[in-house]
Design a binder for these strands. Structure first.
Ligand SMILES: [Mn+2]
Ligand SMILES: [Mn+2]
Ligand SMILES: [Zn+2]
Ligand SMILES: [Zn+2]
Lengths: 147, 147
DNA sequence: CACTAAATCATAATCATTACTATTTAGTTT
DNA sequence: AAACTAAATAGTAATGATTATGATTTAGTG
Protein backbone atom coordinates (compact mmCIF):
# COMPACT_ATOMS: atom_id res chain seq x y z
CA UNK A 1 0.00 0.00 0.00
CA UNK A 2 1.38 3.38 -1.08
CA UNK A 3 1.00 6.23 1.38
CA UNK A 4 -0.46 9.34 -0.24
CA UNK A 5 -0.06 13.04 0.42
CA UNK A 6 -3.78 13.30 1.27
CA UNK A 7 -3.38 10.73 4.01
CA UNK A 8 -0.53 12.74 5.49
CA UNK A 9 -2.55 15.97 5.38
CA UNK A 10 -5.46 14.33 7.15
CA UNK A 11 -3.10 13.04 9.81
CA UNK A 12 -1.92 16.63 10.37
CA UNK A 13 -5.56 17.72 10.70
CA UNK A 14 -6.37 14.92 13.10
CA UNK A 15 -3.55 16.18 15.30
CA UNK A 16 -4.66 19.82 15.12
CA UNK A 17 -1.62 20.93 13.21
CA UNK A 18 -2.14 23.79 10.80
CA UNK A 19 -1.88 23.06 7.10
CA UNK A 20 0.56 25.79 6.09
CA UNK A 21 1.83 26.18 2.57
CA UNK A 22 5.29 25.41 3.87
CA UNK A 23 4.18 22.09 5.33
CA UNK A 24 2.27 21.25 2.22
CA UNK A 25 5.22 21.99 -0.01
CA UNK A 26 7.48 19.97 2.25
CA UNK A 27 5.21 16.93 2.20
CA UNK A 28 4.78 17.38 -1.51
CA UNK A 29 8.51 17.12 -1.94
CA UNK A 30 8.97 14.24 0.47
CA UNK A 31 6.25 12.18 -1.16
CA UNK A 32 8.34 12.08 -4.33
CA UNK A 33 10.92 10.15 -2.32
CA UNK A 34 8.71 7.28 -1.24
CA UNK A 35 11.36 4.75 -2.01
CA UNK A 36 14.61 6.58 -1.20
CA UNK A 37 16.27 7.99 1.87
CA UNK A 38 17.16 11.69 1.51
CA UNK A 39 19.44 13.76 3.72
CA UNK A 40 17.49 16.43 5.60
CA UNK A 41 20.18 18.92 4.64
CA UNK A 42 19.41 18.14 0.97
CA UNK A 43 15.70 18.59 1.57
CA UNK A 44 16.56 21.87 3.28
CA UNK A 45 18.65 23.04 0.36
CA UNK A 46 16.01 22.09 -2.17
CA UNK A 47 13.14 23.69 -0.28
CA UNK A 48 15.00 26.93 0.08
CA UNK A 49 15.52 27.29 -3.65
CA UNK A 50 12.00 26.20 -4.45
CA UNK A 51 10.48 28.30 -1.69
CA UNK A 52 12.53 31.48 -1.35
CA UNK A 53 13.23 32.52 2.21
CA UNK A 54 12.02 29.36 3.90
CA UNK A 55 13.76 29.02 7.21
CA UNK A 56 16.05 26.15 8.18
CA UNK A 57 14.15 26.00 11.40
CA UNK A 58 10.84 25.47 9.66
CA UNK A 59 12.19 22.55 7.68
CA UNK A 60 13.95 20.80 10.51
CA UNK A 61 11.16 21.38 13.03
CA UNK A 62 8.49 20.07 10.71
CA UNK A 63 10.46 17.03 9.73
CA UNK A 64 10.80 16.22 13.42
CA UNK A 65 7.06 16.72 13.80
CA UNK A 66 6.32 14.48 10.83
CA UNK A 67 8.47 11.81 12.35
CA UNK A 68 6.55 11.97 15.61
CA UNK A 69 3.34 11.54 13.65
CA UNK A 70 4.78 8.48 11.95
CA UNK A 71 4.84 10.07 8.51
CA UNK A 72 8.57 9.61 8.07
CA UNK A 73 11.20 7.02 8.75
CA UNK A 74 14.41 8.50 10.05
CA UNK A 75 17.93 7.22 10.30
CA UNK A 76 21.38 8.60 10.97
CA UNK A 77 24.28 8.04 8.60
CA UNK A 78 27.54 9.77 7.93
CA UNK A 79 26.86 12.71 10.24
CA UNK A 80 23.57 13.42 8.58
CA UNK A 81 19.99 12.60 9.30
CA UNK A 82 18.21 10.83 6.46
CA UNK A 83 14.48 10.61 6.03
CA UNK A 84 12.09 8.63 3.90
CA UNK A 85 8.38 9.06 3.46
CA UNK A 86 6.85 6.19 5.39
CA UNK A 87 5.84 3.30 3.15
CA UNK A 88 2.74 2.58 5.07
CA UNK A 89 1.12 4.70 7.76
CA UNK A 90 -0.47 1.65 9.35
CA UNK A 91 3.03 0.80 10.57
CA UNK A 92 3.23 -2.63 9.10
CA UNK A 93 6.53 -3.87 10.36
CA UNK A 94 9.19 -4.76 7.85
CA UNK A 95 12.84 -4.21 6.95
CA UNK A 96 14.75 -2.66 4.07
CA UNK A 97 17.32 -3.33 1.46
CA UNK A 98 19.06 -0.11 0.42
CA UNK A 99 20.93 0.14 -2.88
CA UNK A 100 24.23 1.87 -2.27
CA UNK A 101 24.39 3.03 -5.87
CA UNK A 102 20.96 4.45 -6.73
CA UNK A 103 19.57 4.59 -3.19
CA UNK A 104 16.49 2.58 -4.02
CA UNK A 105 14.76 0.94 -1.10
CA UNK A 106 13.29 -2.52 -1.44
CA UNK A 107 10.97 -3.76 1.27
CA UNK A 108 11.68 -7.06 2.91
CA UNK A 109 9.13 -9.30 4.51
CA UNK A 110 9.58 -11.13 7.81
CA UNK A 111 11.53 -10.08 10.86
CA UNK A 112 14.51 -11.84 12.41
CA UNK A 113 13.79 -10.72 15.95
CA UNK A 114 12.14 -13.88 17.26
CA UNK A 115 15.22 -15.94 16.61
CA UNK A 116 17.25 -13.81 19.01
CA UNK A 117 14.96 -13.49 22.00
CA UNK A 118 16.20 -16.73 23.51
CA UNK A 119 19.72 -15.25 23.63
CA UNK A 120 18.63 -12.34 25.82
CA UNK A 121 17.15 -13.81 29.00
CA UNK A 122 16.08 -11.16 31.49
CA UNK A 123 16.49 -8.35 28.96
CA UNK A 124 13.73 -6.03 27.81
CA UNK A 125 13.61 -5.63 24.05
CA UNK A 126 12.23 -2.27 22.98
CA UNK A 127 13.34 -2.07 19.38
CA UNK A 128 15.58 -3.27 16.65
CA UNK A 129 16.86 -2.29 13.26
CA UNK A 130 18.00 -4.40 10.37
CA UNK A 131 19.10 -3.22 6.99
CA UNK A 132 20.75 -4.95 4.09
CA UNK A 133 23.02 -3.03 1.72
CA UNK A 134 24.19 -3.67 -1.78
CA UNK A 135 23.24 -3.07 -5.40
CA UNK A 136 19.67 -3.46 -6.52
CA UNK A 137 18.81 -5.73 -9.44
CA UNK A 138 18.79 -2.83 -11.91
CA UNK A 139 22.18 -1.54 -10.83
CA UNK A 140 23.60 -5.04 -10.76
CA UNK A 141 22.33 -5.63 -14.29
CA UNK A 142 23.97 -2.40 -15.44
CA UNK A 143 27.26 -3.75 -14.18
CA UNK A 144 27.78 -1.08 -11.53
CA UNK A 145 30.74 -1.93 -9.32
CA UNK A 146 30.07 -2.46 -5.62
CA UNK A 147 32.33 -0.30 -3.46
CA UNK B 1 37.92 -13.91 22.72
CA UNK B 2 38.85 -10.49 24.10
CA UNK B 3 40.91 -8.26 21.89
CA UNK B 4 43.93 -6.81 23.70
CA UNK B 5 45.89 -3.60 23.34
CA UNK B 6 49.00 -5.57 22.41
CA UNK B 7 47.17 -7.13 19.48
CA UNK B 8 46.19 -3.68 18.28
CA UNK B 9 49.75 -2.38 18.57
CA UNK B 10 51.09 -5.30 16.59
CA UNK B 11 48.50 -4.65 13.89
CA UNK B 12 49.76 -1.06 13.67
CA UNK B 13 53.31 -2.39 13.31
CA UNK B 14 52.31 -4.89 10.67
CA UNK B 15 50.89 -2.01 8.66
CA UNK B 16 53.98 0.18 9.08
CA UNK B 17 52.19 2.75 11.18
CA UNK B 18 54.28 4.49 13.79
CA UNK B 19 53.54 3.79 17.43
CA UNK B 20 53.25 7.33 18.73
CA UNK B 21 52.42 8.10 22.31
CA UNK B 22 49.21 9.72 21.07
CA UNK B 23 48.13 6.54 19.31
CA UNK B 24 49.05 4.44 22.29
CA UNK B 25 47.08 6.65 24.67
CA UNK B 26 44.12 6.61 22.32
CA UNK B 27 44.09 2.83 22.05
CA UNK B 28 44.60 2.61 25.79
CA UNK B 29 41.47 4.64 26.31
CA UNK B 30 39.41 2.83 23.68
CA UNK B 31 40.29 -0.58 25.06
CA UNK B 32 38.48 0.33 28.28
CA UNK B 33 35.31 0.56 26.20
CA UNK B 34 35.36 -2.96 24.84
CA UNK B 35 31.68 -3.42 25.49
CA UNK B 36 30.23 0.05 24.91
CA UNK B 37 29.87 2.43 22.01
CA UNK B 38 31.38 5.86 22.69
CA UNK B 39 30.88 9.05 20.71
CA UNK B 40 34.10 10.14 18.99
CA UNK B 41 33.46 13.67 20.23
CA UNK B 42 33.49 12.29 23.79
CA UNK B 43 36.73 10.44 23.13
CA UNK B 44 38.10 13.69 21.72
CA UNK B 45 37.07 15.66 24.78
CA UNK B 46 38.53 13.08 27.14
CA UNK B 47 41.84 12.74 25.32
CA UNK B 48 42.32 16.48 25.28
CA UNK B 49 42.03 16.77 29.04
CA UNK B 50 44.17 13.69 29.62
CA UNK B 51 46.72 14.68 26.98
CA UNK B 52 47.05 18.45 27.00
CA UNK B 53 47.22 20.01 23.55
CA UNK B 54 46.31 16.90 21.57
CA UNK B 55 44.81 17.98 18.28
CA UNK B 56 41.25 17.16 17.19
CA UNK B 57 42.73 16.18 13.91
CA UNK B 58 44.99 13.60 15.49
CA UNK B 59 42.09 11.94 17.26
CA UNK B 60 39.70 11.88 14.34
CA UNK B 61 42.31 10.84 11.82
CA UNK B 62 43.61 8.00 13.93
CA UNK B 63 40.16 6.71 14.73
CA UNK B 64 39.49 6.58 11.00
CA UNK B 65 42.76 4.74 10.52
CA UNK B 66 41.94 2.28 13.29
CA UNK B 67 38.62 1.59 11.64
CA UNK B 68 40.33 0.82 8.35
CA UNK B 69 42.56 -1.64 10.17
CA UNK B 70 39.53 -3.34 11.66
CA UNK B 71 40.36 -2.30 15.21
CA UNK B 72 37.12 -0.45 15.73
CA UNK B 73 33.46 -0.86 14.93
CA UNK B 74 31.82 2.38 13.84
CA UNK B 75 28.26 3.50 13.60
CA UNK B 76 26.36 6.71 13.15
CA UNK B 77 23.67 7.86 15.56
CA UNK B 78 22.09 11.16 16.44
CA UNK B 79 24.48 13.21 14.30
CA UNK B 80 27.50 11.68 15.95
CA UNK B 81 29.86 8.92 15.06
CA UNK B 82 30.14 6.22 17.71
CA UNK B 83 32.97 3.75 18.01
CA UNK B 84 33.60 0.57 19.90
CA UNK B 85 36.81 -1.38 20.28
CA UNK B 86 36.34 -4.42 18.09
CA UNK B 87 35.33 -7.50 20.05
CA UNK B 88 37.42 -9.77 17.97
CA UNK B 89 40.04 -8.85 15.41
CA UNK B 90 39.51 -12.09 13.52
CA UNK B 91 36.26 -10.55 12.31
CA UNK B 92 33.99 -13.27 13.53
CA UNK B 93 30.64 -12.12 12.29
CA UNK B 94 27.92 -11.44 14.81
CA UNK B 95 25.32 -8.88 15.87
CA UNK B 96 24.68 -6.76 18.94
CA UNK B 97 22.14 -5.98 21.56
CA UNK B 98 22.66 -2.46 22.93
CA UNK B 99 21.24 -1.43 26.29
CA UNK B 100 19.64 1.99 25.95
CA UNK B 101 20.13 2.67 29.64
CA UNK B 102 23.71 1.67 30.50
CA UNK B 103 24.99 1.25 26.95
CA UNK B 104 26.23 -2.25 27.51
CA UNK B 105 26.68 -4.34 24.39
CA UNK B 106 25.76 -8.01 24.38
CA UNK B 107 26.92 -10.15 21.51
CA UNK B 108 24.42 -12.18 19.59
CA UNK B 109 25.13 -15.36 17.71
CA UNK B 110 23.75 -16.23 14.28
CA UNK B 111 22.92 -13.94 11.41
CA UNK B 112 19.54 -13.40 9.80
CA UNK B 113 20.89 -12.64 6.36
CA UNK B 114 20.34 -16.00 4.72
CA UNK B 115 16.60 -15.83 5.26
CA UNK B 116 16.39 -12.69 3.13
CA UNK B 117 18.49 -13.56 0.14
CA UNK B 118 15.61 -15.24 -1.63
CA UNK B 119 13.71 -11.94 -1.54
CA UNK B 120 16.42 -10.10 -3.48
CA UNK B 121 16.80 -11.87 -6.81
CA UNK B 122 19.33 -10.19 -9.07
CA UNK B 123 20.63 -7.96 -6.30
CA UNK B 124 24.19 -7.88 -5.00
CA UNK B 125 24.39 -7.98 -1.23
CA UNK B 126 27.48 -6.23 0.11
CA UNK B 127 26.60 -5.72 3.73
CA UNK B 128 23.98 -5.58 6.39
CA UNK B 129 23.44 -4.34 9.90
CA UNK B 130 21.19 -5.60 12.62
CA UNK B 131 20.92 -4.32 16.13
CA UNK B 132 18.48 -4.96 18.90
CA UNK B 133 17.77 -2.28 21.50
CA UNK B 134 16.34 -2.41 24.99
CA UNK B 135 17.38 -2.84 28.59
CA UNK B 136 19.98 -5.41 29.55
CA UNK B 137 19.21 -7.98 32.22
CA UNK B 138 20.90 -5.92 34.94
CA UNK B 139 19.00 -2.74 34.09
CA UNK B 140 15.75 -4.66 33.75
CA UNK B 141 16.32 -6.22 37.18
CA UNK B 142 16.92 -2.77 38.67
CA UNK B 143 13.50 -1.75 37.40
CA UNK B 144 14.81 0.92 35.02
CA UNK B 145 12.01 2.24 32.85
CA UNK B 146 12.30 1.79 29.10
CA UNK B 147 11.90 5.06 27.21
C1' DC C 1 -13.33 40.97 10.06
C1' DA C 2 -11.05 40.40 14.40
C1' DC C 3 -8.64 37.26 17.41
C1' DT C 4 -5.00 34.30 19.00
C1' DA C 5 -2.29 30.40 19.40
C1' DA C 6 0.64 28.32 16.32
C1' DA C 7 3.92 28.70 12.81
C1' DT C 8 7.39 31.10 10.27
C1' DC C 9 11.32 34.19 9.32
C1' DA C 10 15.78 36.08 9.91
C1' DT C 11 19.74 35.84 12.14
C1' DA C 12 23.13 34.03 14.90
C1' DA C 13 24.96 30.37 17.73
C1' DT C 14 26.48 25.65 18.57
C1' DC C 15 28.59 21.34 17.88
C1' DA C 16 30.95 17.72 15.42
C1' DT C 17 34.16 17.23 12.09
C1' DT C 18 37.63 18.56 8.62
C1' DA C 19 41.36 21.49 6.35
C1' DC C 20 45.77 23.57 6.31
C1' DT C 21 50.51 24.38 7.19
C1' DA C 22 54.40 24.81 10.15
C1' DT C 23 56.73 21.91 13.39
C1' DT C 24 57.93 17.65 15.62
C1' DT C 25 59.10 12.81 15.91
C1' DA C 26 59.40 7.47 15.19
C1' DG C 27 61.92 4.52 12.99
C1' DT C 28 65.63 3.90 9.98
C1' DT C 29 70.28 4.59 8.13
C1' DT C 30 74.86 5.95 8.26
C1' DA D 1 74.99 7.94 18.66
C1' DA D 2 73.93 11.68 15.30
C1' DA D 3 71.69 12.42 10.93
C1' DC D 4 67.86 11.68 7.98
C1' DT D 5 63.14 11.68 6.30
C1' DA D 6 58.59 10.33 5.65
C1' DA D 7 54.93 10.24 8.68
C1' DA D 8 52.51 12.25 12.38
C1' DT D 9 51.10 16.04 15.27
C1' DA D 10 49.86 20.84 16.89
C1' DG D 11 47.59 24.92 16.41
C1' DT D 12 44.41 27.42 14.26
C1' DA D 13 40.65 28.28 11.42
C1' DA D 14 36.99 26.73 8.39
C1' DT D 15 32.95 24.00 7.20
C1' DG D 16 28.50 22.05 7.39
C1' DA D 17 24.53 20.27 9.75
C1' DT D 18 21.51 21.47 13.10
C1' DT D 19 19.45 24.29 16.83
C1' DA D 20 18.21 28.64 19.40
C1' DT D 21 16.00 33.02 19.75
C1' DG D 22 12.89 36.71 19.41
C1' DA D 23 10.25 39.46 16.21
C1' DT D 24 6.64 38.92 12.74
C1' DT D 25 3.11 36.56 10.16
C1' DT D 26 -0.77 33.49 9.42
C1' DA D 27 -4.27 29.42 9.64
C1' DG D 28 -8.14 28.41 11.61
C1' DT D 29 -11.91 29.88 14.47
C1' DG D 30 -16.03 32.47 15.77
MN1 LIG E 1 9.58 0.59 4.34
MN1 LIG F 1 30.77 -7.24 18.70
ZN1 LIG G 1 20.27 0.50 -7.33
ZN1 LIG H 1 21.88 -1.94 30.75
Amino acid sequence: MEATLEQAVSILRRNQLKITKQRHALLDYLVTYQDHYVAISAVDEHMRTLFAGMSHNTIYRNIKEFETLGLLEVKSADNQTLVKYQCDFEHQHHHHFVCSNCGRVIELQACPLDAYEAQLPGCTITGHRMEIYGLCDQCTAKGVQAN
